[in-house]
Amino acid sequence: MTPFVYARADSLGDTIAAGAAPDSAFLAGGTELLNWLRLGIAEPTRIIDISRLDGLDQIEALPGGGLTIGAVTHLNDVAQHALVMRDYPVLSQAILHAASPQLRNLATIGGNLLQKTRCAYFRAEEQLPCNKRQLGSGCSALHGINDNHAIFGWTKDCVATQPSDPAVALAALDAVVVTAHRSGGRRIPAAEFHLLPDTRPEADNVLQQGELITAIELPAAAPRSAYLKVRERESYEYAIVSAAAVLEMDGQTIRRAAVALGSVALRPWRLSTAEEQLAGTELGDREALSTAIEQSFAEARPLSQNAYKIELAKTAALRAIERAARMPS
């Protein structure tokens, strides 16, 4: 680990001022950052501990409906909050399927969105060709081990996936990432927070140096929502594919559906084309549901070892929709 200096943040103003200096990094739960420091993925010289910043660990109902979740709220506290469990089961389920109970007591909801790909070449202890580690060095996975890599939105520069579970739920919920920065804050739609590798393969998301996530905002309650995670072992494992579904129903007919897939691209993948066709579909009509989902897979492109993920993802989407429909509203 390269040496760094450390300070505990005490005010929001100081935090975003200090964070703007190059080579500074925020520390929240540390469950990603510490591994990056060990592997040399990040080498900050100044660490700003935001984990005890006042006011960033609250969950509150918003006046016009919806919920705001402070960025340093621990994952377990988000998932087990009464309002999240009742009104946003998709988010609660996604979190409880992530990492381990101990890690979720440390990891924060803001930090979770900033985790990097689990691509083994990227995380290797010896440096291997990887454009995310060193731009221009190539992509070892493109013709290498890519059985768990992307089926959507990849380029020859990077075929990795974003592994976050909560991000998939937030994308389906049309959540908003609220930030603060020395030059002013922003509101970023969760589905547009992560970047595909087409323009800057080395970048993971839209944040600038020193931009602090202060909160995640959820829109109106989504009680008919569910998360499904398919993985090699039943617990404490990253997804092969996952699916988040959020439904509004008229009796047994879908009025509106939002579906996002996880671990299939470098960002949660909304099935927009399918969503349009799902509106007006009868829940009991499995064939119609499958046909609708199929529409969004026209743009799927398998790599040499991961064609199986296409079928898996379609099935996961279908099952997530059916699971969401069974949630009490």
Partner: peptide
């Protein structure tokens, strides 16, 4: 246990 909650001690900077 950190303040009563179970955590992974390898993922925590002592200074924090």
């Amino acid at each position: 246990h950190l303040d009563g909650r179970r955590v992974n001690a390898c993922m925590i900077l002592a200074v924090s």
